[in-house]
Write a protein that binds this DNA or RNA. Structure first.
Length: 430
RNA sequence: GCAGAGAUGGCGGAGUGGUCGAACGCGCACGACUCGAAAUCGUGUUACGGGCAACUGUACGGGGGUUCGAAUCCCUCUCUCUGCGCCA
């Protein structure tokens, strides 16, 4: 959600931004918002005046009653009643105007950064940097599911029976590897000075609507029957919601947090679930990083965050690249975003393993997360950022493909061995 | 889950129908004193919105109601505390 003052004072900037995102259908919203905002202020003016009158009449009545002037008091009561009827009208009208204003405000996208490449869909995303090159294997790399099965590491049949498509059982060394990666990632971020946090895995609807758009909510979130609770799609939801309505002391910024949670997603819509494999599933686990900072620091943290993910993958010897998200592929709340993608030696291409975003004040405005700016003495909105540290089991695909050896075993990089009981490889079943 | 008590500014805490945006204390900011600091004294200090301004509105956990008028009365939801019950 944008600042109404920005739309009022600089509508052309907002419109240009909509065009840059190839959402021309939304262009009329800007003028509608300006008109509704004007109407809202008019209603407020009259309402304020009427309410001022109500207050002073009420005060008078109090005085008259005390002085025993009953007749005059009754007269004033009648006057007040009339006034109150008009107030009720105005309030009903205001409510309607505000509702319309809000739905429009909510669908006007956040202003994007100047350096976001323009393009209408993900085919215009831009590769910025690659790390560790591209592993070439001198043997054919099988589909990840076949690798998992050769290691006795997965049971999809049972998962379909218990839970349906989109779920999995990981077993044995593979399950241990999954946990090892998460534990290593957690410690990696703690070493970077982040605070580890385990958040609630369910959140209320008001938090949900604060952290995402309605469309996202509908396509992603599982609702708990009979309760106002949703399963989180990522720990970002409960981590950002944690600060809802707060005014943080300036000295507490930046908040640099790393959180673990399972993530639940319907994955309703365009892509659907893959029939085979664990690329897109209803339940996975993720280590996340979250930053709340002062506005002038969010660009700095954005660069820092995605580089942490790269550093983590490089330390596990998995080649990655940074893919910059173009204007049309950027979600409406985001100022800037990039994906960290891992190299697949089987497909000979990169695929997404993490996503880093700077939302500037868009989330903070919706959720009312502010800080006291000691220089100005004002409460101002913070900036929020989030980034994937690592999300197995998807990351496991990259891991298995890159570390598979010709003999069918899977190499464990040095950094993970302490979490794997010292093992340096996983060997296939006989 | 049941019963009782409660939710007020950055914090603690008064206030039970009108003079309350809210006593008092802490904290914070500024000033005085000091070589400097502590202590002390003084002044200021809720937030958000409308208006060029004068000024004005809203908010005492959330929502709804009663009333000319609600922090205060009623309903409801959420949360906290105490006791009982249940349980990793």
């Amino acid at each position: 959600m944008l600042d109404i003052n920005l739309i009022r004072e600089n509508p052309d900037l907002v419109k240009d931004n909509i065009k840059k995102k190839f959402q021309d259908k939304k262009l009329p919203l800007v003028d509608e918002v300006i008109a509704l905002d004007k109407k809202k202020r008019e209603l407020q003016s009259e309402g304020d005046m009427r309410r001022a009158q109500r207050n002073s009449l009420a005060k008078d009545i109090g005085t008259l009653m005390r002085e025993g002037k009953k007749d005059e008091a009754e007269k004033a009561k009648l006057l007040s009643k009339e006034n109150n009827e008009r107030i009720a009208q105005i309030e009903a009208e205001s409510e309607e105007v505000e509702k319309q204003l809000k739905t429009r405000m909510m669908s006007i996208p956040n202003i994007i950064a100047d350096d976001v490449p323009l393009g209408k869909d993900d085919s215009f995303n831009v590769e910025a940097k690659t790390f560790l090159g591209k592993h070439e294997k001198d043997f054919e790399v099988p589909y990840h599911l076949d690798i998992l099965e050769s290691l006795n590491g997965i049971d999809l049949d049972a998962a379909r029976r218990t839970s349906g498509n989109g779920f999995y059982y990981l077993t044995g060394d593979v399950a241990r590897l999954h946990s090892a990666i998460l534990s290593y990632a957690r410690d990696f971020m703690i070493d970077k000075g982040f605070t580890y946090c385990i958040p609630p895995y369910m959140i209320r609807s008001n938090v949900v609507s604060g952290v995402m758009s309605f469309e996202e909510m509908d396509g992603m979130m599982y609702k708990i029957e009979g309760e106002d609770l949703y399963l989180i799609g990522t720990s970002e939801h409960s981590m950002i919601g944690r600060f809802m309505g707060e005014v943080l002391p300036e000295s507490s910024l930046p908040q640099t947090l790393t959180s673990y949670s399972p993530c639940f997603r319907k994955e309703k819509g365009a892509h659907g679930l893959e029939e085979r494999g664990i690329y897109r599933i209803h339940q996975f686990e993720k280590q996340e990083m979250i930053v709340l900072c002062k506005p002038e620091e969010s660009d700095y943290w954005y660069e820092k965050l995605w580089n942490y993910t790269v550093e983590l993958f490089v330390s596990m010897q998995i080649p990655v690249r940074q893919l910059i998200c173009c204007s049309g592929d950027l979600a409406d709340l985001k100022y800037k975003s990039c994906d960290v993608e891992a190299w697949s030696p089987r497909q000979k291409k990169y695929f997404e393993v993490g996503s880093c975003s700077n939302l500037t004040d868009a989330q903070a405005r919706r959720l009312g997360i502010r800080y006291k700016n000691t220089a100005t003495g004002k409460n101002e909105f913070v900036h929020t950022l989030n980034n994937t540290v690592v999300a197995p089991p998807r990351m496991l695909i990259a891991f298995l493909e890159n570390h598979l050896q010709a003999d069918g075993s899977v190499f464990i990089p040095e950094v993970l061995r302490p979490y794997m009981g010292g093992k340096d490889k996983i060997v296939p079943k006989k």
